[in-house]
Write a protein that binds this DNA or RNA. Structure first.
Lengths: 150, 150
DNA sequence: GGATAATAGTTGATTTTGTAACTAACAAGC
DNA sequence: GCTTGTTAGTTACAAAATCAACTATTATCC
């Protein structure tokens, strides 16, 4: 379809707008992987993110997860509760500061993490294979930069 | 922070996982622009997407917007209703098929579109300036490919 | 050391999204 | 032409995200 007057005037193409492209690519690329944790474990995105952070970084607090992944504390709080219910993690109140809780994966949590890691690695490889190796590396670098800005 | 046993075993780094990176970059890069349409017009993301599609492609149906932007029809339906309430668009039932409605921006809708376009173009330039010109072009191409996969 | 501010995390109310069922109109096969 | 299936769009209900207010604890500073 050709563009109309309103568009020609300022030559703006939605299909080139970076935030739009990033959102579309993110949604699209999340879909397939989402099925893995949703169908298998009934997990939500925030939950696997918390799970992955714990698996990746070991014992850590809710606040630290929120800072790293830029997730709001209420979302984390609810995700942690659900993961605790499913016996995927345990909380230990900190000795030094009783407001803080240290979170840690249980063996079941680690098992889930490992399985999802495998699926994630495979899926990531599949996505990366859409590009040349050096292009994919550059893509990761640029996305990291965009994710870290502010 | 160093990685723990669970992570070392299978060398999976969350910070390199493409769907995670894409989501983080998308969220981060949307924030500033989101303020523009939220604060100025009280719009939600789906609403400006519909607005932009109408501004970009002219008269079009709800279904076509949904296909192009991969937005579910219920979301579109609600966004169209809100944009209509704000008098940013009008609906005209199709002559040939009375199930279909042709959507069109009003002058007010076009004005909002134009203003947001300006902001968008500026913001896009700012994002693109984080990279070399050819890198930014490659980024757009890769994102388009990821958005179109399936 | 006692008032004030700040921080970690939770809870509740409101808004937004997602899912499924629905209406109205058209299309196809017989 | 009438049953069966499909499509565009809406609506109702359930699930989830957002925002504000809250508790409990620690830090600050006079």
């Amino acid at each position: 379809m050709t563009k109309t007057d309103t568009a020609k005037n300022d030559a703006f193409d939605l299909q080139d707008f970076l935030p739009y492209l990033l959102n579309r690519a993110a949604e699209e690329s999340s879909l397939e992987f989402q099925r893995a944790y949703k169908d298998r474990y009934g997990m939500l995105r925030t939950e696997w993110r918390v799970l992955f952070h714990l698996g990746n970084y070991g014992e850590i607090t809710a606040k630290e997860i929120g800072e790293r992944a830029r997730i709001h504390k209420t979302k984390i709080s609810r995700a942690v509760s659900k993961l605790e219910l499913r016996r995927f993690l345990t909380r230990t109140p900190s000795e030094r500061d009783r407001r803080v809780e240290h979170l840690k994966l249980t063996p079941a949590g680690k098992a889930a993490y490992r399985e999802l890691c495998g699926i994630a690695r495979q899926y990531d490889a599949k996505l990366a294979a859409m590009f040349d190796e050096d292009e994919a590396a550059l893509l990761r670098k640029m996305l990291q930069k965009l994710a870290e800005m502010r």
